[in-house]
């Protein structure tokens, strides 16, 4: 649509309106008569922005804060849990110092640096299949070494705050741990008298390992709840670490007996593990 230039009558209106504007401007500058109107408007602006802030923004930000504080608490809780697990693990290692370390100073230095003896590493649990652990032959854990250096961890011992858990059998992206209860696992044991040795094998049953021996060779008598320790003969596990106690004694025939040893460790208890390169 075409636009026309203002006609003379319109020009007069423009002139009058501009004149009115000048009058208002002059009055405002010299007499401050519009201060009341302006103040009313500002007070309205301030009160409306205050109400808006109070009613919407603050309540919304409070709502977000509640979520954030909850998240913070969860994070803090996880951190505390990690620290607690770490302290449990440290306590366990300190209590078994003589078994793991020949030099007391190396233990102290390692604990201070949060890494034991240069050959001890902390590892986080990455995956485990609890169903496999309860039912089947293959009992494995996958760990990720914290502050991992570029080195192989194969045949390293894995422990948690409850005791020895197993050994690393594959050291690629994650460390694959074969648990003591794995059917392929074997650990040399010794009883409390120090006169009886046997290789306990995993039976694919959670919490138990089995020690088969010939009564013709080993004449010692065993009773339920007799404790068993690692003998250190295999070269992988350190010696004198309590592994478990006898849960049952099963005589298969006149020559063979199977000791069912209940393990004291629970591999599913912690998320933090220690990896010890012996």
């Amino acid at each position: 649509m075409a636009r026309n230039s203002p006609k003379p009558s319109e020009k007069i209106i423009y002139f009058l309106v501009i004149l009115l504007g000048i009058l208002i401007l002059y009055t405002d500058i010299n007499t401050k008569k519009f201060v009341g109107i302006k103040n009313n408007l500002y007070s309205f602006q301030i009160s409306s922005s205050f109400i808006f802030n109070r009613a919407i923004i603050e309540s919304f930000s409070e709502f977000i804060e509640i979520f954030k504080s909850k998240e913070k608490l969860i994070i803090e809780n996880n951190l505390l849990k990690d620290k607690l697990e770490e302290s449990y693990l440290k306590n366990y290692i300190i209590s078994k110092e003589n078994s793991f370390f020949t030099d007391h100073n190396s233990l102290i230095n390692s604990l201070r640096e949060n890494r034991l003896n240069g050959d001890f590493f902390y590892a986080k649990l990455r995956s485990v299949d609890p169903n496999m652990f309860s039912c089947c032959d293959k009992h494995r854990l996958f760990l990720e070494i914290i502050d991992e250096e570029d080195q192989s961890f194969e045949e390293s011992v894995v422990l948690n705050s409850t005791g020895l858990v197993g050994q690393i059998i594959d050291s690629k992206s994650y460390q694959e741990v074969m648990l003591l209860t794995d059917i392929k696992s074997s650990i040399p044991l010794i009883d409390s008298t120090g006169n009886f040795y046997c290789n306990a094998k995993g039976g694919g049953k959670a919490g138990y390992i089995f020690c088969t021996f010939s009564q013709l060779v080993w004449t010692e008598k065993h009773e339920i709840n007799d404790p068993f320790f690692s003998s250190g003969l295999g070269g992988i596990y350190p010696k004198n670490i309590k592994i478990g106690h006898i849960a049952s004694i099963n005589k298969i025939d006149s020559t063979s007996t199977v000791l069912k040893i209940e393990l004291i460790n629970d591999p599913l208890k912690d998320n933090l593990f220690g990896v010890l390169k012996m």
Binding site: I13, G21, D28, I37, K38
Partner: peptide, 30 residues
């Protein structure tokens, strides 16, 4: 704009802006 904007619309728009921007009344209006 497709149509001519009249003096009153401009005047009151300017006056409104004067009010919200805290300048002298009539400044933007003129």
């Amino acid at each position: 704009s497709n149509n001519n904007i009249g003096p009153f619309e401009s005047f009151f728009t300017g006056l409104f802006i004067d009010l919200i921007t805290n300048t002298y009344l009539g400044h933007n209006a003129i």
